[in-house]
Design a protein around this nucleic acid. Structure first.
Lengths: 103, 103
DNA sequence: ACTCAGTGTAAGCCATCGCTTACGGTAAGC
DNA sequence: GCTTACCGTAAGCGATGGCTTACACTGAGT
């Protein structure tokens, strides 16, 4: 059961972000992803495993190929985590600026 | 000039998330942060450096102490990055579910 | 049945990174 | 001026993690 923390950690890696962004444009197979990236196919497969366990992507078999697509679940958890700090951060920032205005 | 990628990478580390969450509740000094965390003070200082260069926290001197507070700039960039995929991810997910409903 | 495309996993290597200890440098109090 | 608190940085170490190569498995086509 992935939480927002695992999703954030998963997207902390640049290669995984690249994979995720490509899947957001269009669902693809593992080989398709690997062909457009500077890493090997097994590397892509491992990254997909991480993204999947973080609730960021989903798979469905299509013959021998595994088609990966974006799963909004993981993004939702990151967004929820973000929103917990959004207003608070703005308020804290404003208070800080008042007492010590930036140069 | 930090972008959304550096902010995401910065928050990929659990310790940095802990530091950031504490700063969101209230601005603190380096020593205060270190006292509530299972790592040494220099470690906290290094993490703060990363968070600062990612636009996630800001500093202002108060005597010999450096008070760190949350900077909403970094959060805003993450949010912008997230919103770029939000609708797209939802649509793609719905289309995927239609053609291959989950078990 | 055989071949081939497509994929996941294991093993291992190497760079990155988070952490510690040690040191130097600044600001406040006596 | 001296001491003390507070902090940043350097150096070094150990572990994590991303990558590659090699192997095993499944499904489609002939």
């Amino acid at each position: 059961m992935p939480n927002a923390l695992t999703a954030l950690s998963a997207l902390g890696d640049p290669t995984r972000r690249a994979i995720f962004e490509r899947l957001a444009r269009q669902p693809r197979s593992v080989g398709q992803l690997a062909r457009g990236l500077p890493v090997s196919r097994p590397a892509v497969s491992q990254h997909l495993q991480v993204l999947k366990s973080a609730g960021l992507v989903a798979v469905h078999a299509e013959g021998a190929r595994r088609i990966y697509s974006v799963d909004p679940h993981g993004l939702g958890q990151i967004r929820a985590w973000l929103d917990r700090f959004w207003d608070k951060a703005l308020d804290a920032f404003r208070a800080e600026v008042e007492k010590d205005p930036p140069k």
